[in-house]
């Protein structure tokens, strides 16, 4: 399968990215290429310009300081993040999430900026030009007028399946976005997502993600990300759950709980956090928290996995991730 034709641009610094994005409408940023190039091969995306940002060394950093916390350039690879000693020790959930994405090769190529910006996926969307040819109707995400996942749905119900966002949400990360004027904007990672499947994040065509920041967790904090997929490698999660728990004096002082692959974006489960915070963590409390997760989520079925199963699975994954974060 060939890529469609495009013009190739290769900025060497951050400023240049902005000016290239401003100058060239219908341009797309490519870093690892692991998400976008397949879509281009399938002719889902056919940009006029491809802006390869991988020559900007500055954006590849993984830096940690007790005071400044963890700074991940948007081009830091998933592999490097998953193998960073500090990330493994202090931001375990992120290392686990990054380390279980797809395959070793794709982790070597894929970047954190790419992973958080990944589009939602769907059996009716992630298909080739050849597949679409005879379709009498297209889905919302392809610019059509319907959703094939749920007949009668007024909007796209493609599934958001990235692994790192729930970990980043649980760990309290922020995202630095550079806008068309070159101005930087820092937002909580939760606010990066629209919870709309058709356009999952708030990035405008002239925006790009510069870096991600996670504050150093307070003493007594542990985190965990658990993923279940059909296969141990290559696959996106059927469901994933991240928990970040701070214990102080036998009580849960702070909790971050988030899940993925249940809807139109990664979901922070405040209801679950509230059950934990201020209490001593017991099996009963964890079960109650997991039940709250089960009650909260309203997953869509996807392919051969029912909503019924996803809810059950999320309950188990939330329970187990909290437990592991408390061990």
């Amino acid at each position: 399968m060939r890529l469609p034709k495009f013009e190739y641009l290769e900025p060497t610094n951050v400023k240049e990215i902005t000016s290239l994005l401003k100058k060239n409408a219908d341009a797309i940023l490519v870093a690892g290429g692991t998400d976008i190039l397949p879509k281009m091969k399938q002719r889902i995306v056919t940009p006029k310009f491809v802006i390869n940002v991988t020559k900007i060394e500055d954006l590849k950093k993984i830096e940690f300081g007790e005071k400044k916390g963890l700074i991940l350039g948007s081009l830091a690879t998933l592999d490097n993040i998953s193998k960073s000693k500090q990330v493994i020790e202090k931001f375990t959930a992120l290392a686990q999430a990054a380390g279980r994405i797809a395959s070793p090769q794709l982790r070597n190529m894929g970047t954190i900026g790419g992973n958080i910006s990944i589009e939602s996926m769907c059996m009716y969307f992630n298909q080739s030009h050849e597949w679409r040819k005879g379709r009498p109707h297209l889905c919302f995400k392809l610019g059509g007028d319907r959703c094939f996942v749920a007949k009668g749905s007024k909007e796209c119900l493609a599934l958001f399946q990235a692994d790192t966002p729930p970990a980043l949400i649980a760990l309290g990360a922020t995202v630095t976005i550079v806008g068309s004027t070159g101005k930087e904007k820092i937002i909580n990672i939760e606010d990066f997502y629209t919870q709309k499947s058709k356009k999952v994040n708030i990035l405008k065509p002239t925006d790009f993600v510069k870096q991600i920041h996670i504050p150093t967790p307070p003493k007594g904090t542990k985190s965990c990300y658990l993923k279940m997929a059909q296969r141990a490698a290559i696959d996106y999660p059927i469901a994933g759950a991240a928990a970040c728990i701070t214990i102080s004096g036998n009580k849960c002082k702070n909790a971050g709980i988030a899940v993925t692959s249940v809807g139109s974006g990664p979901l922070r489960l405040k209801e679950v956090e509230d059950i934990l915070i201020g209490n001593s963590i017991t099996d009963e409390l964890i079960a109650k928290a997991a039940d709250a997760a089960y009650e909260k989520i309203r997953p869509m079925p996807h392919f051969n996995i029912s909503a019924w199963y996803k809810r059950k699975l999320i309950r188990v994954l939330v329970k187990r991730s909290i437990k592991q974060a408390c061990i």
């Binding site: 290429g33 091969k41 090769q105």
Partner: peptide
């Protein structure tokens, strides 16, 4: 489409997929 690994090459020490590398 990056799911089988038959095109794996090593670039600057890392195994990557040549089918998804420009």
């Amino acid at each position: 489409l990056g799911a089988c690994g038959a095109c794996t090459v090593i670039i600057d020490g890392k195994a990557v997929l040549a089918c998804l590398t420009l």
